[in-house]
């Protein structure tokens, strides 16, 4: 039997982020040529703030996609966390660090509870997280009666508006921490490898001694934590505790990972690809605004992007399968 070694080149081609990365680059160049204001420092600041929040949201969905499931409750967890954070500060005068811990705890607990029910009953994640979506949203509205909390502490407000250097917002810091952490989880940590193993071949994973229940609960807990972080980042960015936070996360949370090459049946995710997915969506959204195009067109473009990405991923899978079949035959 011949020795097989993967060359660096094959590995590079196998990467998920090169395609979306190139697309982002071209989009930036093209739009800035047509509209130089695109690269103004104000615009970059706005763009980077949006990218930061959306990246954390997308990562929250990416964990679950890696497992081959989906989390419809992502946005409602983020919303509940956001209003709880501002709520306990405004109503009970809780100090910010304590409120922060409390809010993140809610996110983890919410994720863990869906994860526990899914792992325990093996009912589809879709229906459990749909119920979760409704429950968390209902609690959110029940508490706020659809009115925002305004008592966001100054420190948090500043954090959402200040820049680290030049046009780069502070919000990028938590985003980058989350992204690096998730890259680490998927590539270097036992839990991440187990999530991906479960996603690619649940049967093999279980026979290999991976505990499926624990893995599912962990994945949903991480997803809940990321949703919570994104919710808090939005509080900082919007400067109020809006009950509507999270309402519009659903589509983009799937769009970015899918554009980044994630396969929805699980086992294949790319943090870098997801980042460029987020960038592409942000650039297009921003571009439409700059060219005074109806912002609702964003919805259409998002939908079309998902379909396009799904088609590309599908073609790639088919091609890989064909190459492998040929390799096995030779």
């Amino acid at each position: 039997m011949a020795a097989i070694r993967d060359s660096a080149l094959t590995r590079a081609f196998d990467n998920d982020w090169i395609g979306p990365g190139l697309v982002s680059l071209i989009a930036v160049v093209a739009i800035s040529m047509a509209q130089p204001a695109f690269l103004s420092s104000f615009n970059i600041f706005v763009l980077m703030s949006a990218i930061s929040v959306n990246m954390v949201i997308a990562l929250g969905q990416l964990v679950i996609i890696g497992l081959g499931q989906m989390n419809l409750a992502l946005g409602s967890i983020g919303g509940l966390v956001a209003i709880s954070f501002v709520g306990v500060i405004e109503r009970y005068g809780v100090p910010v660090p304590l409120a922060l811990a409390f809010a993140l705890g809610i996110g983890i607990a919410a994720g863990m509870s869906s994860g526990y029910i899914i792992a325990r009953t093996m009912i589809s994640a879709f229906i459990i997280t749909l119920a979760g979506l409704q429950i968390f949203k209902g609690i959110n509205l029940g508490i706020t009666e659809a009115q925002p909390f305004y008592g966001v502490p100054e420190a948090v407000k500043t954090f959402g508006q200040a820049s680290v250097i030049g046009p780069l917002p502070w919000l990028m810091v938590p985003m980058m921490i989350c992204a690096f952490a998730m890259w680490y989880v998927f590539n270097r940590m036992r839990i991440g490898r187990h999530i991906l193993a479960m996603g690619s071949n649940p049967h093999a994973a279980e026979l290999s001694g991976i505990d499926p229940k624990a893995t599912i609960i962990w994945a949903h807990a991480i997803s809940g934590l990321l949703a919570a972080i994104a919710g808090l980042m939005l509080v900082a960015r919007l400067q109020i505790g809006q009950p509507t936070i999270g309402d519009d996360w659903l589509i983009s949370s799937f769009a970015a990972p899918v554009i980044g090459g994630a396969v929805l049946t699980g086992g294949r995710v790319s943090v870098a690809g997801t980042f460029f997915g987020v960038v592409i969506i942000a650039i297009i959204t921003q571009g439409l605004v700059m060219f005074n195009i109806d912002p609702f067109v964003v919805q259409i473009v998002l939908g079309a992007l998902i379909l396009w990405a799904v088609a590309v991923n599908r073609l790639r899978e088919v091609r890989i399968a064909r190459v492998q079949a040929r390799g096995a035959g030779a």
Binding site: M70, F126, L250, I251, F254, V258, L264, F296, V297, V298, Q299, I300, V301, L302, G303, A304, I306, L307, V310
Partner: peptide, 13 residues
């Protein structure tokens, strides 16, 4: 799931 997620966005948009 993913197809109708996209189409819901497109139809509504």
């Amino acid at each position: 799931f993913i197809i109708t997620l996209a189409s819901m966005s497109i139809f509504f948009g």
